[in-house]
Design a protein around this nucleic acid. Structure first.
Lengths: 190, 190
DNA sequence: ACCTGAACACCGTTCAAGT
DNA sequence: ACCTGAACACCGTTCAAGT
């Protein structure tokens, strides 16, 4: 880690976030002081860019949702409702396993009071592609009618739950496909 | 908080766990030193009962799974597969909302290396009633055949995901019932 | 056996001061 | 505007010592 001095010409913020992600991926605990050390700056310097530790965590979570949303959006290129839903579930599970600690952070303490509203908005944007799949599925007659949000809740709950189980080692990826298949059948109009 | 002196005649461990749950419920951060203070003991005393902070967290998680399992077991008294599954989902979601911080702790870092095996075993025991519902449903012809673990994965994923969404404020309890209904339809033999 | 007190190496946060 | 250094009030963990 050769400390590039040019780093600190306005992008300390980005450097800190990068280092934080690396720590998260390595399973290290996040400490502001350590991040500052790693990036070659005094322990008080991050204060200029993040009001406190929580602000940095919020920025990290928001970034995570934005990347997740981008990946989910790509899954829309599959043809047909079933293929799209399968692709979406696989994409979500893959993101969850590749960025396990980040995903945990993304969903952690969202219920705590005084959350950064930016995180919630990013989460909503990230999950929008899933709603798009539902609406298209309804139009194609593959999905029951009703408020897309209601149907989407079932889909998102299943996918999110499956990802959590895979991360806990309770499930392999074949079981994910099987569960999604069950869900697809349940969503069909009757 | 009148510090009862008789507390410390062999049950410091239980007192610490109780206080930890209270802190969790209040949304306070868990600090071993604060727990010791609250319970009226020196900051080094907990060491006798918990090797380190993680050991206390593991004990807390294990306890949580045991209580969750007991509540889920009660849901089995409902009559018929549909009613049992609905009861189970409502029970799980209720536990999740009443003990949000505890549930987060229960599922947090399960994937980290060197976990207390007791926690995983308690988790498995807690979820067993759910498998029982599946098996009974299969025998009654309300659920597709196949390995109960595979079908159970879909059920647990959905329920766990719904609970997470309710905790995040993304969902109300009516939507839970609707999603479970979709799942029931998907599980039917065809 | 169970607990205390001091010590060590860390934290997050604040604030005057430097450039 | 951006960063430093010292300071404050906390942590978790360890260890000799007390009863």
């Amino acid at each position: 880690m050769t400390a590039t001095r040019s780093y600190h010409h306005g992008n300390l913020r980005a450097a800190l976030l990068e280092e934080a992600e690396r720590a998260l991926a390595d399973g290290r605990d996040l400490s502001l002081r350590e991040l500052a050390r790693e990036v070659g700056v005094s322990h008080a310097a991050p204060r200029r860019h993040f009001a406190d530790k929580q602000a940095l965590l919020d920025a990290l979570a928001q970034d995570g949702f934005e990347r997740l949303g981008a990946e989910l959006g790509e899954a829309l290129s599959a043809a047909g409702f079933d293929a799209q839903l399968h692709a979406m579930a696989r994409t979500y599970v893959r993101f969850a396993t590749r960025h396990a600690a980040l995903l945990e952070l993304m969903y952690t303490g969202k219920h705590r009071p005084g959350v950064d509203p930016g995180v919630g908005e990013a989460a909503e944007r990230a999950l929008r592609p899933m709603l798009g799949v539902i609406v298209a599925g309804q139009e194609a007659g593959a999905v029951v009618g009703g408020a897309p949000e209601q149907v989407g809740a079932a889909v998102f709950a299943m996918v999110q739950g499956l990802a959590a189980m895979v991360n806990l080692g309770m499930l392999d990826e074949a079981a994910v496909d099987a569960a999604v298949e069950r869900l697809i059948l349940g969503l069909r109009p009757r």
